[in-house]
Structures are given as structure tokens and as C-alpha cells.
Amino acid sequence: MSRHLYRPGHQRQPVERLRGRKGQEQRLRRLKAHGVTCSRCGRIGTWESKQATDALPLLVIDHIVPLALGGTDEDSNTRVLCEPCHRDATAEQFGHRKRIGCDEDGWPVGDHPWSR
């Protein structure tokens, strides 16, 4: 069974994706081909969600040009990102605001007016 993704605001062109066992095999093959390093920040991560921690983030397959924006589901359009980089890259690609975390006292961290 395939899932169709559509490019918002454009003529609807379905993008076929592998699901089930073949989709899992494709994901594992891509992860092995790219290695255990995030291609954006260079952090070492893990493929296993049970082993993921703040120090060892989960690695995910990211489409360089998102399927929803007309990208293809080919190996040449993929890269491996850690979860924080994947969240940021997705926000940038779709025009969402970047998430800002909080420190242990509840104050925003990073580039936020309150933390200046």
C-alpha cells in the first residue's frame, strides 16, 4: 500500500512511497549508506530509538527537497539528520518558526529576545 503526498497549492501530483517491510528495508539501507553522523551538525547519533538520548540523538532520513514540495523519494534526495536538525530543517522548508527550548529555570535559550 502506498501513501500519496501532494504539493500544496499546485496541481496534485501523487508521490509514491514504500511502506511496510520494503519501506523499513529502504530506511535501514539509507541509514547504513549515510553513516551514523548528522549531515548538518556532525553529531554522532543512533538508528535505534531505544538507545537515543540527548547526548546520542536519534538519526532520521530527511528528504532534501520534501516530497510535499515536489521532491522525489530517491536515494539522491535523502540525507541523514539528527532529530533536532530534522526539526529545524523541516521548520525552515515549510516556513514554520524555529522551536526555542528552555533552561532548567524555564527561561528561553538560544536566540530569543528574553535571553539577550
Rank of each mutant, 00 (worst) to 15 (best):
L5G: 06
G35E: 11
G70A: 03
G42Q: 12
W47E: 02
H96N: 01
L59N: 00
H34N: 12
R7N: 14
G35V: 06
L81W: 09
G20T: 03
Q11L: 10
Q11R: 02
E16F: 12
A55K: 08
L81D: 12
D88V: 10
R97L: 07
K22T: 07
T53N: 09
L56R: 04
G110D: 15
D62W: 05
S2H: 06
L69H: 06
G70Q: 05
R30F: 04
D105F: 15
V109N: 02
L28M: 13
M1Y: 14
Q13H: 10
Q93H: 09
P66R: 01
G95T: 07
R21C: 10
Q93T: 02
I61P: 10
V109F: 02
I44Q: 14
L56F: 04
P66M: 00
I100K: 14
T37F: 01
H96M: 03
T90C: 13
L81E: 11
R40K: 15
R17D: 03
H63I: 01
A91W: 13
V65D: 13
D103H: 12
P66N: 03
Q26T: 00
R40E: 14
R21W: 08
C102N: 09
P66H: 06
R79T: 05
R17W: 08
L67H: 00
M1G: 14
P66T: 03
K32H: 15
E92Q: 10
A89Y: 14
G9A: 07
S76P: 06
V60I: 01
V36M: 12
R87K: 11
E92I: 05
G9S: 03
G95P: 04
